[in-house]
Design a protein around this nucleic acid. Sequence first.
DNA 1: CTTAGGTAGTTGAACATTCAACCTAATGCT
DNA 2: AGCATTAGGTTGAATGTTCAACTACCTAAG
Lengths: 162, 162
Amino acid sequence: MSDETETRWLDATQQRSWRALVIGTTLLMDRLDDDLRKGFGLSLTEYEILVRLSEREGRQMRMAALADALRHSRSRVTHTVARMERAGLIERCTAADDGRGIIATMTDEGWDLLVRAAPLHVTSVRDNLVDLCDEDDFAAVGRVMNAVADRLVGDHPEVDIR
Amino acid sequence: MSDETETRWLDATQQRSWRALVIGTTLLMDRLDDDLRKGFGLSLTEYEILVRLSEREGRQMRMAALADALRHSRSRVTHTVARMERAGLIERCTAADDGRGIIATMTDEGWDLLVRAAPLHVTSVRDNLVDLCDEDDFAAVGRVMNAVADRLVGDHPEVDIR
DNA sequence: CTTAGGTAGTTGAACATTCAACCTAATGCT
DNA sequence: AGCATTAGGTTGAATGTTCAACTACCTAAG
C-alpha cells in the first residue's frame, strides 16, 4: 500500500479500463463456466484441475501443488477434489516420500472427459477473447496480468507460476 | 461459437497470457476483497453496489438496474442487498411509477462507509494494478475487456454498460 | 375487459467457497 | 532423544452464490 496522504483517484480513462476488466472477466468466466457445465457437467474450476493434472508426469500432483498452481486455498482444493473423486474423475492416495502428502491422480475417465471438453473450451476462449482483439493488445494483457500476479504472489509465498 | 472442425489450440504465448489473466484477476480480486473486509467489513461485491448507488441521482437505483450494471443475477442482488439492508447501509422501497419495481437507496451510514472505504480501495487498485504497468498496456487491457464485454453482453440483452 | 405473455423481484434449497479448528507427519533445536 | 514449530491436509459450520419455482404487476392483442 502506498503511503500518500492524498488519494490519487483514477482518471476517466483508467476508470473505464478498470471497470471493463471487472465486468469483462466476470462475463467471460461465467460464460466459460456455463459452456463446460452445459456441455460436460464440469465447472471451470474442475476443468482447470483436470488441465493441471494432465500436464504432469503420471497425470498426478500433490494437493498443495495443485492449490498453489491454481491459487486456491487448500481447503477449497480438498472440497473440489473430493467432489471429483466421488464423480470418478480423480483418485487420491498418500505420497510415498512424505507421510503428510496426498497425491491426486486423474483417472482414465477424467482424462477422457478432459479430451472431450477441451476443444469446446479452447474454442470458447478464442471466440470470446483471443480472436476478438488485436494480437498486440492481448500480449499487453499478458504483461499486465503477469505483473499483477508477480506482485501479489509475494504475499502468498514460495509459489511457482508456470 | 465458431464452427471449425479442427480445434485451433492456443500457442505458447497466448497460453501464457491467458493463464496470467486467470491467475492475475483471481489474485487481484481476492486482494481487493480482503482489503475491504479487513478494513471495513465490506465485501468487494457490497462495495461495488455502494459505488453504483453513489453515482446516481438520489443515491438510488432499481434492483434490476443494479443487477444489470454489475452483471449479477437478480437473485444475487436481492440476497446481497437484503444483507446490506440488515446492516443499515441500504433501504428498499417500492417504485412510485412501476408497482413491480423496488428502489434501493443508500443510507447516510452507507455513504459514510463508502467515503471512508474508497481511498483504501483506489489505492489498492493502483498499487496492485494501475501503477504496476505501462499506461499503454493498461489502455490495451481496457480495449480487450471492452470487446469481451460487448461480445458477451449480447447474450444477456438490453444492458447499458456505463 | 379479459387473458396471455413478459418483466421485476423474492424465496428457499442446493451447491460452492471461506474460515477456523484440528490432526498428523516432518523438521529443527538443544 | 525430546520438544516446539511448521507444513500438508481435512473437517464442519458459516457465508455467499446459483438455480428453479413462485408471486405480483404491467402490457398488448383480441
